[in-house]
Design a protein around this nucleic acid. Structure first.
Length: 775
DNA sequence: GGAGGCCTCGGAAGG
DNA sequence: CGAGGCCTCC
């Protein structure tokens, strides 16, 4: 049991044994971070700390679950009592306990992103706002960022900076909109994801005795993935830890890739400022990857300015160099990847699940999928629509939600006429107006439709009444029936099951199966929960909803994981995972780094960290690839190789072609990150010439626009085989007049350096350079 | 009230 | 290109 310490290196051991006081562990990629966290908690428990007094916060439920299991392996069943989970799940639990103090019911609903959007869409419409200015996604992310920075409606209204931002974007009603959204959620007894953190702060700051209670309860606090915490989370941790200061945060600033959703990298960069006697331990030995991979990753990340000083190293084998493939099209790229996997599989007897294909955007999965299918290589795509986000599941959950919390207006609106029961938009609108006029809930109007409303015909009134009777009949069963019995009754008696049963289209069949799966899940839930509790208690639907509200697909036990398939996922999803063979595809400017990151250094650095994450997933071999043309939104577009390839030290690269722009021989200087901010000027304008100017900055091989016509069959490409010679006078469509200085390489890889009068020296690929030779 | 056509928009995604 | 929201027409 106690030999767990012997498997640790000295830094890891220090981190584990340093159980008192503030500690920050900077854990490089593959440095055994999870091991340290689990051992540290085991150590606390072995030292006599009550598991009830340990709070361990993670970023995903999956991580929490895995960690709990690993701790259980060391200390046994008492590990179950540790407060371990995501910020959201732990504080949702606490908020349910303390709900009355902030005016919420303890069975409050948790609105997911779709619910929030739907509420916003409704408010924007009700306020008759211009939907071009008040775009739902934009408004939502803005409100989210207000909340994550603890900017309440009141604070917003006195915040000149934020207001000016909105005013200058014509969003003068933003404050009002924010206010209405907050009220709408509150009125519905609902919290969105950001509320779970914001309301926790509210709870703790307005109720010192509550804060005090939890400060005492959580005498030891651990936070994983600290680099990805936002301001709201930071404040919660700080408040809870301020009494005992037994706080341990673990993270890697180099792997902070979630600032787009509010994560604040300063939390980790500034941690030491918050605690006076802080200890900092760096885990720098990488156990995962080869030397070439580690060093290549280091050379890339060194281009970032904002980072903590550390040196990740490994004593593993040198390994292969990072292979870089170039393809003409995205389909070719996929073909090369699939062929390569096929080859390695057979030559080296490697199984499918040793391979991962990582990409920047989900859209890139399609070509990979096709290529793998052609090679008959089993694969699995991770991500996409989660089970609980599926329409049919959300429909059923909406019934559950309304039955347990009739204030939940989103749920009510979703199902009041689903399945169709003749309560149309006009009836709903009338009831809405009536509710608003009398300051009542929509459900109040529905429930008392006969007395509450005039202007609805008797047929409509009857239909509404039947609906209200239906829902109330379910409500009557809440206390006596368990979650499964009630769920079954709801799906049957609401007509929803029949609806899906009748639909014999493939989608309909799949919907029906999903509903069955949901019901099976509930049945299983009831069974497991009953076994867990010794008492004969009713596992209610309310309890079920509370438990699943924060569950997502990623947490489901993936039985498929044992199946042998190649994994396809975005780089974001790959965080924390590792594979012997990793393919990072689509390494092109404007794709990776993403076009949207080009306007600021901070965003570009995040893209670079993302690339760092991708590269450090590889254990044995990493392969990079890019295409010269790619379909994006139905259009074939030209691509330039990503700057990230150039940023890797040549010593660790193995180019499978000869003329990738090289820093050392670069003629048009590659500016290594100094001028990113100035690029705003060239990128804001989408005109062709500006785009080309930009490309030139990053690549000394200029690949002209006309490549567009080249299709996936590369054998059909006809090269311009004009005979160039040193000293020739030439003209170029864009660069004008110039003199050929020298020729390098042969055949398709022949390069020409030309000194142009207007733009100076350029190196062009002979096969693409459209030079007119002047006699 | 509902089906189908039109229009718009598009990043990554934990809870 | 493809999904989803919205609007129109029946």
């Amino acid at each position: 049991m106690s030999n767990y310490l012997t498997h640790l290196n000295s830094s890891q051991r220090n981190a584990v044994e340093q159980t008192k006081g503030p500690l920050m562990v900077i854990a490089g990629a593959g440095s055994g971070k999870t091991r340290v966290l689990t051992c540290r908690i085991a150590q606390l428990i072995n030292q006599g700390v009550d598991p009830f007094n340990i709070l361990s916060l993670t970023f995903t439920n999956k991580a929490a679950k895995e960690m709990k299991e690993r701790i259980q392996d060391i200390v046994g069943a008492k590990a179950k009592n540790i407060w371990m989970g995501t910020f959201h799940s732990v504080f949702a639990k606490i908020l349910r306990i303390e709900a009355d103090k902030i005016g919420y019911p303890s069975n409050f609903t948790i609105y997911d992103s779709d619910d929030s959007k739907s509420v916003l869409r409704r408010i924007i419409k009700e306020m008759s706002l211009d939907t071009d200015i008040y775009k739902v996604n934009l408004v939502k992310s803005r409100i989210s960022s207000f909340k994550n920075n603890l900017v309440t409606v009141k604070a917003y209204n006195t915040n000149l900076e934020l207001k000016t931002q909105d005013d200058s974007a014509q969003r003068t009603q933003m404050g009002l909109l924010y206010d209405r959204y907050v009220n709408e959620c509150f009125k519905s007894g609902a919290m969105d994801f950001d509320d779970l953190l914001l309301r926790t702060n509210e709870l703790m700051f307005r109720h010192p005795q509550v804060l005090h209670k939890y400060q005492h309860r959580f005498s030891y606090i651990l936070v994983d993935e600290y680099q990805d915490t936002n301001h709201s989370q930071y404040l919660i941790v700080k408040a809870l830890a301020s009494l005992n200061e037994n706080i341990c945060v673990v993270g890697d600033d180099a792997q902070s890739i979630y600032s787009f959703r509010g994560a604040n990298i300063r939390n980790i960069l500034n941690f030491k400022k918050d605690y006076s006697d802080i200890k900092i331990i760096k885990l720098e030995q990488n156990y995962r990857s080869t030397q070439n991979i580690v060093k290549a990753a280091n050379s890339v990340i060194s281009n970032n300015k904002d980072q903590l000083d550390k040196k990740v190293w490994t004593s593993n084998d040198l390994g292969d160099k990072i292979k870089v493939n170039r393809s003409i099209t995205d389909n070719d790229e996929a073909f090369v990847v699939a062929s390569n996997i096929f080859e390695i599989k057979h030559q080296e007897q490697v199984s499918n699940n040793h391979f991962a294909i990582l990409y920047r955007t989900n859209a890139q999965s399609r070509s990979m999928e096709e290529a793998l299918r052609k090679r008959a290589i089993p694969y699995r795509i991770y991500g996409g629509l989660s089970f609980y986000q599926r329409r049919e599941i959300k429909d059923i959950l909406a019934y559950f939600r309304l039955v347990t919390n009739t204030k939940d207006e989103e749920a009510l609106r979703r199902i009041i006429n689903y399945p169709k029961r003749g309560i149309g938009t006009s009836s709903i609108n009338r009831m809405t107006v009536c509710a608003q006029k009398n300051g009542k809930l929509l459900w109040d109007v529905v429930q008392n439709i006969k007395t509450e409303i005039t202007g609805l015909n008797s047929g409509s009134i009857n239909k509404v009444e039947n609906f209200s009777i239906l829902i109330n009949s379910f409500r009557g069963m809440l206390a006596e029936k368990d979650a499964y019995e009630l769920a079954l009754s709801i799906t049957k008696n609401s007509g929803i099951l029949r609806e899906y049963q009748m639909d014999k289209t493939p989608e309909g069949i799949s919907r029906y199966e999903n509903v069955q799966e949901l019901l099976n899940g509930i049945q299983n839930f009831v069974k497991v929960e009953k076994e867990k509790s010794d008492k004969e208690i009713n596992i209610s639907l309310t309890y079920y909803l509370e438990e699943i509200a924060l569950i997502t697909d990623a947490d489901e036990t993936n039985f498929d994981d044992t199946l042998n398939h190649v994994s396809l996922m975005t780089i974001h999803q790959s965080k924390g995972l590792e594979y012997p063979y990793v393919y990072i595809v689509g390494l092109e400017e404007n794709l990776f780094p993403s076009q949207m990151s080009m306007t600021s250094r901070a965003d570009l650095e995040e893209e670079r960290r993302l690339f760092y994450v991708a590269l450090t997933r590889a254990e044995k071999r990493a392969t990079l690839s890019f295409a010269l043309t790619r379909y994006r939104w139905g259009n074939l577009v030209d691509c330039q190789p990503s700057r990230f390839i150039e940023e890797i030290d040549d010593a660790y690269l193995d180019l499978t072609f000869t003329n990738l722009p090289k820093k050392s021989t670069s003629i048009v200087k590659f500016d290594s990150g100094l001028n990113y901010d100035t690029k705003v000027a060239t990128r804001n304008n989408n005109s062709v010439s500006d785009g080309d100017l930009f490309k030139l900055k990053n690549s000394n091989v200029f690949i002209p626009k006309n490549l567009k016509r080249i299709r996936s069959n590369s054998s059909k490409v006809s090269y311009n085989d004009q005979k160039y010679e040193t000293g020739m006078k030439v003209t170029h469509d864009r660069f004008g007049f110039g003199i050929i200085l020298r020729l390098e390489g042969n055949g398709a890889n022949k390069k020409i350096s030309v000194n142009f009068t207007k733009v100076g020296e350029k190196t062009l690929l002979a096969k693409f350079a459209k030079l007119n030779i002047l006699k």
